[in-house]
């Protein structure tokens, strides 16, 4: 069943179409990688999913909810940078994931809920391997640690979908590889529906169940801004992107046995 449904989505900035006729249906628990050249509208698509911006036409629904007008707790986001609060310690950042939305003042209303949030935060610290850094401020963390914290912070709010905007773009290759493993483990644990924008094709295929490519289908050399982009390829990337080959090998094995 479709969990995230995108229907006839258009987005236009100052008369220039960026996205046009995007239709998409994503099942719960799918990891969707979004790739494409710079300026192809993949970040715009993510902002529309986030409800940071509203579509010019068409709509996005998540789990049958009415389209959102502003970012809310249904959507978790991890940006490339500035995703955690620099003025809070690592542990406070995780507690804030519960506290900010708890009351209109952004504080937990009772001692019991405070204790519960602290327990959740401590468990998360343990899980992401930052238990020894709980009292540190994010500025003293490495880039990989900051992104692990940002992901944990988003997941504590239990969003329906998790959005990742080039989350590992600022990391070195070694850290990036270990972040991939971390993210795959997390995904298996939480059965999250994830949308990740990335520049790195191999990263997209390694992590994604589906890889969407955004590109312009129509192109006028005299009017490069005349047309918007849409989903041009929709790969099934499970089993390392070669589901049919593995199927055939299994079949061959069956035959030989």
């Amino acid at each position: 069943m479709s969990y995230v449904t995108v229907t006839d989505l258009h987005k236009t900035y100052a008369g220039f179409p960026i996205l046009e006729r995007v239709n998409l249906s994503v099942e719960k628990g799918t990891f969707v990688s979004i790739v494409g050249a710079s300026g192809c509208g993949k970040s715009t698509f993510l902002r529309l999913l986030l409800a940071q911006e509203r579509p010019t036409r068409g709509e996005i629904t998540i789990d049958g909810q009415p389209p959102a007008l502003e970012p809310n707790r249904d959507r978790g986001i991890v940006f490339q940078r500035y995703s955690v609060f620099g003025h809070m310690t690592v542990r406070e950042n995780l507690i804030a994931a519960e506290a900010l939305g708890a009351t209109v003042w952004g504080v937990l209303p009772s001692r019991a809920r405070r204790k519960a949030a602290e327990d959740v935060a401590d468990a998360a610290l343990e899980r992401i391997g930052l238990a020894h850094m709980g009292k540190a401020y994010p500025a003293s963390l490495s880039g990989g640690m900051q992104q692990r914290l940002a992901i944990a912070q988003s997941l504590i709010a239990k969003p329906r979908i998790l959005l990742l905007d080039e989350p590992f773009g600022a990391l070195d290759p070694g850290t990036r590889a270990s972040m991939h493993d971390f993210l795959l483990e997390i995904k298996a644990e939480w059965d999250m529906t994830v949308f990740m924008v990335t520049h790195d094709l191999s990263e997209g295929f390694k992590l994604g169940d589906r890889v969407l490519v955004f590109d312009k289908v129509r192109w006028d050399p005299h009017e490069p801004h005349a047309y918007g982009a849409t989903v041009t390829y929709d790969f099934d990337a499970r089993n390392g992107g070669i589901p049919f080959q593995s199927l055939s090998i299994e079949t061959v094995e069956e035959i030989t046995v």
Binding site: P71, F79, R81, Y82, A96, L100, G101, W105, A157
Partner: peptide, 19 residues
């Protein structure tokens, strides 16, 4: 990003301003 992040954690405008 910080404001949007706070919104995705459910923060009201008041909570964003204060916290």
């Amino acid at each position: 990003e910080q404001i949007v992040k706070a919104q995705t954690l459910g923060a009201s405008s008041l909570a964003i301003a204060l916290r």
